[in-house]
Write a protein that binds this DNA or RNA. Structure first.
Length: 752
RNA sequence: GCCCGAGUGGUGGAAUGGCAGACACGGCGGACUCAAAAUCCGCUGCUCGCAAGGGCAUGAGGGUUCGAAUCCCUCCUCGGGCACCA
């Protein structure tokens, strides 16, 4: 029952939240002009420490293309022109027809009432008017043909448009344009392969060098004029001529040099594509037919929703139109209502209806808007109507991270000095950071939603002087999706995964066989797993620890409960190493630890610090397992746990399993929380070893291991290796051609 | 179709040019117990061998290197994103 932004619609034409079907309707809605920030959103990605893949997703979504806009005069009109955008101005001489999107406003203006009867004078000669009219203009005059085609195109869903991309449909509108390069008359079509939402909603069609135009031209028997000479390999492979497209079965979209592209004022022949683009664009500007242009895929952001739970717009209406409320009347607060439901309907033509419209007492409001900034509007109390749409959920997530810095400030979003103190800092390479938040961890599903919106708002706030950096998030780490098994019935519909029975690799739902696949957890695949049962059975520490132990943070992985007992056992064992379960007494001693324990403890601290810094929680936990296993052996048969080990162990466990760590901290005799304690640091003297075991290879196969002193040179390594009985035996019967030594790592004898 | 990412034991994973399989699950064996559970200890990639020891092995195939899970090329499979963007 609500409107959504493009970004919230999935590839299947469904809502990102809830998986509901989505329909297109013309509506008057609030938009935010994010397109005004397209260049900065693109350019500033370079100074962020984000993964290449998510930067690429944003770049693709913004979709910046450079090219030229070209104006084609409409034949028989003094001032009407069709403006197109092209990334290939070098192919302008090869434009043999034009296409307008079905929604293009110029169609109504230039469609004549009669089909032309002078088609035989067409420069391209092969005019096939009946073919151009197709099924839509078979018998009726152009306006009826165009209307019928527009109805046909409008009836298609987005999904149908996607799945039928190969089939080109359209109809000649009965009018011609003039190709400004050669004054050729070129027919104008309406076709839904041109989208109103991109560029100007109109294209020049160059079928020789564009796949879609080629397919359309073949369908409608339109001329195909090659103006870029294809590579010799391509010509040979297809067995066709460079200057005659008669036998071509595909457009040539590769590099080459221009041909057949000369008029009295400009000559492109012989120029490579890149140079030809520059030369022809310069001519376009000189002759007034066009200019260099940049276009974006990014659309303005549809910011209205027909929901109760959203921030109300600070907007009221009078007969004249919308009025922004002054600061003194903010914030506008949602009214108390009893019915929060949107009005939903299975009728695709139903218009969305905001729930707030039903709160009549709130909608109708008496205000006095008199004041200098409202001159011409309110003089004295008058009745206004409130805006009943609300903002989308993204409105809050666009700035919440700023509020964390100063959550109790009643006067401002965030105090300027407070914000600046957090904004200082440097990146890993020593350069100043440009993003406020040092590390932001979130799901990749927000790549072109929250992470784009928040960047946009932050830049607006920067421009208004409210924040001191141009980006919100300096370093971004995406945790991988948790995948879960999803199950499809025989019709290809998803069934509730938690109702599926497993019969040794075969699966059934309500007695019927289903097939298994893996996908991201969520409503659409009906495979979400609620954490509540896991809390109940194992506790929050176990769940938290397990999620971090499952694998690398940034990798997607399947959810499986099979291994959770492992981390649960670790926590129980940890507890028993601190507390005697028979007596309840803490078994901690102030006596010193033995050397082996000290070595292991300090190696563990060192490893865990490194792993934590690299967000490698799974390996940090593995190191703690090892230390804990050692402690288990230590306290066996009534042994005691040295305090010098118990304290750092507790502090290392704390970020991973905070509840048990606080409890152990208390058992160690502390009254306060461990939250403000420093993370343990290793004692360097216990990290150094004096000897190291080095594998000895013969022809790259490990045959023995020898111990050498730390810091020993290559000769010492080789001598030690040769002295090893098994190596000596193997070398005795052979000739050594080469010896490779990497001190401390490897000795490799290469035999002749 | 195009663009990213990932393929390692029965399972999740470790190792980012130098001993493949850390740690954990599961499995097998043992201790404890009247018994079971829990707990503790040991073994556990495949394969040939009584053993000593050998061979094979990181999706498939090729390449670089003394040496490749790791770097390069081709292909396959899975996951994600985009998709008539002129």
């Amino acid at each position: 029952g609500t409107v959504l932004a493009n970004e919230e619609v999935t590839g299947d034409g469904r809502s990102e939240r809830g998986n509901f079907p989505v329909y297109r309707r013309p509506l008057k809605q609030w938009m935010l002009r994010i397109t005004a920030y397209a260049d900065r959103l693109l350019d500033d990605l370079g100074s962020l420490d984000w993964t290449d893949s998510i930067k690429l997703m944003q770049r693709n979504w913004i979709g910046r293309s450079t090219g030229a806009s070209v104006r084609f005069p409409v034949e028989g009109s003094e001032d009407l022109e069709i403006e197109v955008f092209t990334t290939r101005p070098d192919t302008l001489f090869g434009a043999t027809y034009m296409v307008l999107a079905p929604e293009h406003p110029l169609i109504d203006v230039i469609t004549p009432n009669q089909w032309p009867n002078d088609e035989l004078s067409n420069d391209f000669a092969s005019n096939e008017l009946d073919v151009w009219k197709g099924v839509f203009g078979a018998t009726d005059p152009p306006p009826d043909a165009v209307t019928r085609y527009r109805d046909f195109a409008a009836a298609k869903t987005d999904l149908e448009r996607q799945t039928e991309t190969k089939e080109k449909t359209g109809v000649f509108i009965g009018a011609y344009a003039i190709n400004p390069t050669n004054n050729a008359r070129i027919p104008i079509f309406v076709a839904d392969y041109v989208l109103m939402g991109y560029g100007t909603g109109a294209i020049m069609a160059v079928p020789a060098h564009d796949e879609r135009d080629f397919a359309f031209a073949r369908e409608f028997e339109l001329p195909i004029v090659p103006v870029i000479r294809p590579s010799d390999e391509w010509l040979a492979e297809h067995g066709v001529a460079a200057d005659d497209a008669t036998g071509w079965v595909a457009a040539y979209v590769g590099d080459g040099v221009a041909q057949s592209s000369v008029n009295d004022e400009v000559a492109l022949d012989g120029l490579p594509v890149d140079e030809a683009k520059g030369v022809v664009t310069e001519w376009l500007e000189r002759s007034g037919f066009g200019k260099p242009t940049v276009t974006y895929k990014l659309r303005d952001w549809l910011f209205s929703r027909q929901r109760y739970w959203g921030e109300p717009f600070p907007i009221v209406y009078d007969d004249e139109g919308p009025i922004a409320l002054p600061d003194s009347m903010l914030p506008v607060v949602l009214p108390d209502v009893t019915d929060f439901e949107p009005v939903t309907s299975d009728d695709p033509d139903a218009l969305p209806e905001p729930p707030l419209a039903r709160a009549v007492d709130w909608v109708e409001v008496e205000l006095d808007l008199a004041g200098p900034e409202w001159a011409g509007y309110g003089e004295g109390p008058r009745t206004y109507l409130r805006e009943t749409n609300t903002m989308p959920q993204w409105a809050g997530s666009c700035w919440y991270y700023l509020r964390y810095l100063d959550p109790t400030n009643e006067d401002a979003m965030v105090d300027h000095e407070v914000e600046q103190s957090w904004a200082q800092g440097v990146r890993g390479d020593g350069t100043p950071k440009v993003g406020l938040v040092d590390l932001y961890v979130g799901g990749v599903e927000h790549a072109v939603l929250h992470l784009l919106y928040a960047r946009f708002w932050h830049k607006v706030l920067f421009d208004l002087g409210h924040v001191s950096e141009i980006e919100p998030f300096q370093r971004l780490v995406n945790q991988g999706y948790i995948l879960a098994a999803a199950f499809l019935d025989e019709r290809g519909a998803y069934v509730d995964a938690d109702q599926v029975a497993d019969h040794n690799g075969r699966y059934s739902f309500e007695g019927r066989a289903v097939t298994r696949e893996f996908g991201k957890m969520g409503k659409s695949l009906r495979n979400a797993i609620a954490p509540d049962d896991i809390y109940r059975d194992y506790g929050a520490d176990t769940l938290r620890l397990y999620e971090m132990f499952m694998g690398p943070l940034d990798k997607e992985r399947p959810w499986s409960m099979a291994d959770i007992v492992g981390v649960h056992r670790f926590l129980q064992r940890l507890w028993r190493n601190f507390v005697d379960e028979n007596t309840g007494a803490t078994r901690v001693t102030d006596a010193p630890a033995d050397d082996a324990t000290r070595r292991l403890l300090n190696r563990t601290i060192d490893s865990v610090r490194n792993d934590m810094a690299g967000l490698s929680f799974n390996t940090a936990i593995a190191r703690l397992f090892e230390l804990n296993n050692h402690l288990t052996a230590l306290v066996q048969d009534g042994g005691e746990l040295p305090r010098e080990v118990a304290v750092p162990m507790t502090l290392m466990v704390a970020p991973l399993a905070p509840h048990i760590a606080e409890e152990l901290w208390s058992r160690l005799g502390h009254d306060d929380t461990l939250t403000y304690e420093s993370f343990p640091e290793p004692d360097a003297q216990w990290l150094v070893e004096d000897r190291v075991e080095v594998p000895v290879q013969i022809n790259s196969k490990v045959r023995a291991r020898v111990e050498v002193a730390i810091g020993a040179d290559a000769a010492a390594h080789e001598a030690a290796a040769r002295a090893e009985p098994r190596i000596a035996e193997l070398l005795a019967a052979a000739t050594v051609r080469q010896v490779k030594v990497v001190p401390g790592k490897i000795v490799n004898f290469v035999l002749a």
